[in-house]
Amino acid sequence: MIDTIRREVIVSICKQVFGTNHRVSSVSKITPISEQGIPRIDGCTQHICYHVCCHNSTKSYVFRFFRDLPNREDRYIHEEGIYRLLSQELSLPVPKILYTDHTRQLVSTNYIIMEYVSGEHWQFLAHSDNPRTNSIEKMKIQEQVGALCAQIHGLEKSSQDNQSFIQTLLRSIENLERCVEDGQYQVSLSAISEAKDLIQKAPWLKLTKHSLYKADAEILFSKDHRQNWDVSAIIDVEAMDFGDPYLDLTNFLCEPTPIWKLEEPLEVVSPEETRKKPLFRGYESVRSIDYSRLAKVCIAMHLSIMCSTAAQIYWPEIRQYINVKKREEIYDSLLDACVNRYLIG
């Protein structure tokens, strides 16, 4: 796994891509940063990123290198296609991709160069403990994010495979099933089997249309000329794709806590209360939500994500941090919620 790229390699790439007149003035690695305990810039396990400035250019650049080999060239094609969709179909601000390379002549991995776009991550600005923004600004930022996601979900195409989400869910649950059969967790195999059966039969998982969904793409904000926070760019879109738009709403529901950190099943306790949340209020200003279906997708997605991590118990470097008893309690409660409350019908 590649962990760093030497400055002289980046200088050579700059000369090759932009010409010898582009002289590098600074190279800084983009690393996770927190401010007052609030994540401001997230780290990335797949890429190594650098912010690069040149003496004779008013613009600066992001150089993003893949950590692992082999890399697939179609990742770049997909990412460029998503940026093009967002820009051309929705007129949303995105960074311009300037160059991609998979020849590995100057560096032993694939890389991509794009314009650097300044801005703050919306989760950082909207965090309840962030003193940079007041309560009204936090609310308006969340409403904008909700409305923006509804716009993105408006890009639809006919579903060629309405079983894809079902198959993803089943693979995750089978991951837990194998661990239980191997004696790693004490969880009811009959409950696992019943959940799998219900998922295979669930009509609400079979969509005739798929929407473009945000996934873990980042939405940046900066202040406009009136000193109001506004969207400056959507970045890191490589995971965006067409599928079930309620996957984004599932993440909204547990914001700011990642779903995999929840110790209780993720539930839509009350549609009325959920509608009052700024993210959902902004979303529903553009697009309606079926809260009955959302409740089912939330619990299925939470189960899927937790089951997908079950095999971590075989990894020595992670096993020492796993509270097996707590994991078993979470699996039991999720399976109970799925089988007895949500996945039926």
Rank of each mutant, 00 (worst) to 15 (best):
R171N: 15
R171K: 15
S172R: 06
S172A: 13
N175L: 09
N175C: 12
N175T: 13
L176W: 01
R178M: 13
C179G: 09
C179Y: 04
V180P: 01
V180S: 08
G183R: 13
Y185W: 14
Q186N: 13
S190H: 11
A191E: 14
I192S: 00
I192W: 00
E194N: 14
A195H: 04
A195T: 11
K196Y: 04
L198T: 04
I199Y: 02
A202K: 08
P203Q: 14
L205C: 06
L205P: 00
K206W: 06
K206N: 12
L207T: 09
L207A: 09
T208W: 04
K209Q: 15
K209M: 09
K209W: 08
H210V: 13
H210S: 13
H210N: 15
S211N: 07
L212K: 03
K214D: 01
A215P: 03
A215K: 12
E218R: 11
I219Y: 00
L220C: 07
L220F: 04
F221S: 01
F221R: 02
H225D: 14
H225N: 13
N228K: 15
W229N: 02
D230R: 11
V231I: 15
S232M: 13
A233C: 10
I234E: 00
I235G: 02
I235K: 02
D236C: 02
E238I: 03
A239N: 12
A239Y: 05
M240I: 07
D241P: 03
G243M: 09
G243Q: 06
D244C: 09
Y246F: 10
Y246S: 02
L247A: 07
L247R: 14
L247D: 07
D248L: 01
D248T: 05
L249V: 03
T250F: 02
N251F: 01
N251L: 06
F252H: 03
L253I: 10
C254P: 03
C254M: 06
E255G: 02
E255L: 06
P256L: 02
P258S: 09
W260M: 13
L266H: 03
L266F: 04
V269D: 14
V269T: 15
V269L: 14
S270R: 10
P271S: 04
E272Y: 05
E272L: 07
E273Q: 14
T274F: 00
T274V: 13
K276Q: 13
K277C: 02
K277P: 00
K277F: 00
K277G: 03
P278E: 01
L279T: 05
R281Y: 09
R281N: 12
S285L: 08
V286W: 08
V286F: 10
V286K: 14
R287P: 01
R287Q: 12
I289T: 09
I289P: 02
I289D: 04
I289K: 08
I289G: 04
D290C: 08
D290E: 11
S292D: 14
R293W: 04
A295L: 06
A295N: 10
A295C: 09
A295M: 06
K296E: 04
H302A: 09
H302R: 12
S304C: 10
I305K: 12
C307H: 04
C307I: 06
C307L: 07
S308A: 15
T309Q: 13
T309D: 11
I313Y: 01
I313T: 05
Y314R: 15
E317S: 14
E317N: 12
